[in-house]
Each structure stands twice: as C-alpha cells, then as structure tokens.
Simulated assay, not measured.
Amino acid sequence: MRNRNTIEFLGVWEELHNPDFNRVQFEAVKNEAGLYRFVMTPTKWIKQMNAIGIVSKAGRYGGTYAYIEDAIGKLKKTEYKYIHTGEKAFV
C-alpha cells in the first residue's frame, strides 16, 4: 500500500461508503503517499481511517480481504469515482 493511486482509490471508496471515514487523517496520509519513507499497512489504514472497505485478520486463517468493488476498480485503471458509482449499480 505504498502507491499513491492505491491510497487515493481506497479513500474515494471509503468516502462513498463509510460515513465515519476520517477525512482529515486521509488528507495527511495522501500527501505523504508515494514518498520513499511512506509505509501504510492494511491494519494501520483500518485504524487511522476508521475504514470498513478492508478487513485484516492475524493468525491462522487470517489475511487481508477487500470488497469486490475494490478488486474490480484496480483492474480498470479509469476514473475512480466513475468506477465506484458505476459498479455500485451492477454489483
């Protein structure tokens, strides 16, 4: 989760689907994304942003999971907001 585009994509998804999303913290993280020293883990993302789009579980049978809309959007490489609103109607 070092790529700025990934961070922006997740932020747009959270803004559309999560009323408790921490927008102030997101802006600070977005400004640092892409820098060499920037590191964001899924667990850190969930805690700092109050995120609901990613689920991360530790231990046996654990892993990091995202909603299907995230996976579809990462494959398309087009306008973020269009993907979210367009796929929402069909998923």
Rank of each mutant, 00 (worst) to 15 (best):
E14R: 03
E32S: 01
G34T: 00
L10E: 11
Y61L: 04
W45H: 01
K81N: 15
W13F: 07
P42R: 02
V24F: 09
N50E: 13
G11F: 04
K76T: 15
N22T: 01
Q48I: 13
A58C: 03
M49D: 11
Y82K: 14
Y36C: 02
G62V: 00
Y82W: 11
F90V: 10
N31A: 04
E79D: 15
G63R: 07
N5C: 04
G34R: 03
G62Q: 01
F38M: 02
F38W: 03
V24W: 02
L10D: 11
T64A: 08
E79L: 08
K57H: 10
K81A: 13
H17P: 03
A66P: 05
N5H: 06
F26Y: 10
I52Y: 02
G59Y: 08
F26E: 02
G73V: 06
R23C: 02
I68K: 14
V91K: 12
T78I: 15
A28S: 09
T43E: 12
G11M: 02
A71G: 06
I52P: 11
T41A: 06
K30T: 03
T43F: 03
T6F: 10
I7F: 09
Y61G: 08
D70P: 02
G11V: 01
W13I: 05
K77T: 11
V91Q: 13
Y80G: 09
M40A: 03
W13Q: 00
N50S: 12
K47E: 15
E8V: 06
K88G: 13
K57G: 09
V24N: 09
S56I: 02
A71Q: 10
N31H: 00
I83Q: 15
P19F: 03
Q48C: 13
R60E: 11
Q25E: 15
V29D: 09
H84M: 15
M49G: 12
G53H: 04
L35C: 03
T41S: 13
T6E: 14
E8I: 00
I54E: 07
K81Y: 15
G73H: 02
Y82F: 11
K74V: 04
D70E: 10
V55A: 12
V24A: 15
R23A: 04
F21E: 01
A28L: 11
T43G: 10
W13K: 00
G53I: 04
N50A: 06
V24E: 14
R23T: 03
E69L: 07
F21K: 00
A71I: 06
Y61R: 07
W13V: 09
R60W: 13
V39C: 02
T85M: 14
T64H: 01
E79M: 08
T43Q: 08
E27C: 00
N50F: 05
S56V: 01
L16D: 05
K77A: 11
K44Y: 07
V12W: 05
N3Y: 07
K44V: 04
A71W: 03
N5E: 13
I7E: 12
I68D: 15
T85R: 14
E8S: 13
P42F: 02
G63L: 00
N5R: 09
F26L: 01
R4V: 04
E69Y: 04
G73K: 00
T6P: 06
I46K: 07
T43L: 06
Y67E: 15
K44S: 09
E8M: 10
E69Q: 10
V12R: 10
A66S: 12
K47W: 07
